[in-house]
């Protein structure tokens, strides 16, 4: 069966009062679950992904092909930056990891990614989320799962200190329009 894989919005990028909201191109994602105390799991998964799986909470590790994002002590999100590697890695993970002790799920269609950029981005996010952004998202290696009004989201900080602020928000596709409308409404106060 061939799946239609597409983004949610037709107008992919919107700018308002110095803040841009952009839906990123469709990216493949895998939800990976396993026990960090299982040496076989950690070494085989690391070998397939060519990257060490992060065990520190609220962090991500990235190479040129994919991001590995910590979701919980036994769960990670693999977000692919290079489409060509997705099917190879999915197959290799299925072949090399013990199916009784791990879970590998293609969740590409589950969520879309909105990137918000601009100088007031942190202030904009503070209007909607209860997270202490300055403490939890204090570097470009940090991620956080939280609640945006009533929507579960995963927020990833992209920028370094003194760079233009940039965050990626992973959100359920069905909630993405609502979330973008709220963000656009929140931009009204920021006069460029």
């Amino acid at each position: 069966m061939t799946l239609k894989r597409s983004t949610v919005f037709e107008d992919v990028k919107i700018e308002k009062n110095g803040i841009s909201i952009q839906e990123l191109p469709f990216v493949e994602k895998i939800n990976l679950r396993g026990d960090t105390k299982d040496r076989d799991f950690m070494s085989n998964a690391g070998a397939v992904l060519d990257i060490l799986i992060p065990t520190e909470p609220n962090t991500k590790i990235q190479n040129k092909d994919l991001q590995v994002i910590w979701l919980s002590p036994n769960e990670w999100l693999l977000s692919f930056l290079n489409e060509n590697h997705f099917f190879r890695i999915l197959e290799e993970l299925n072949n090399k990891l013990n199916p009784e002790k791990t879970s590998i799920t293609d969740i590409s269609e589950n969520k879309t990614v909105l990137r918000i950029e601009g100088n007031h981005t942190t202030e904009l996010l503070r209007k909607f989320i209860v997270l202490d952004i300055d403490n939890v998202l204090n570097s470009n290696l940090r991620v956080a799962q939280t609640i945006f009004i009533k929507i579960p989201v995963l927020i990833i900080r992209n920028h370094n200190y003194q760079e233009k602020q940039s965050f990626d928000i992973h959100v359920n596709r069905s909630h993405s329009k609502y979330l973008r409308d709220l963000l656009l409404d929140g931009c009204n106060q920021f006069i460029n």
Partner: peptide
């Protein structure tokens, strides 16, 4: 114990 201090709304 895993994520650190968060608001009650998340729990």
């Amino acid at each position: 114990p895993y994520c650190g201090e968060r608001e009650q709304e998340e729990f």
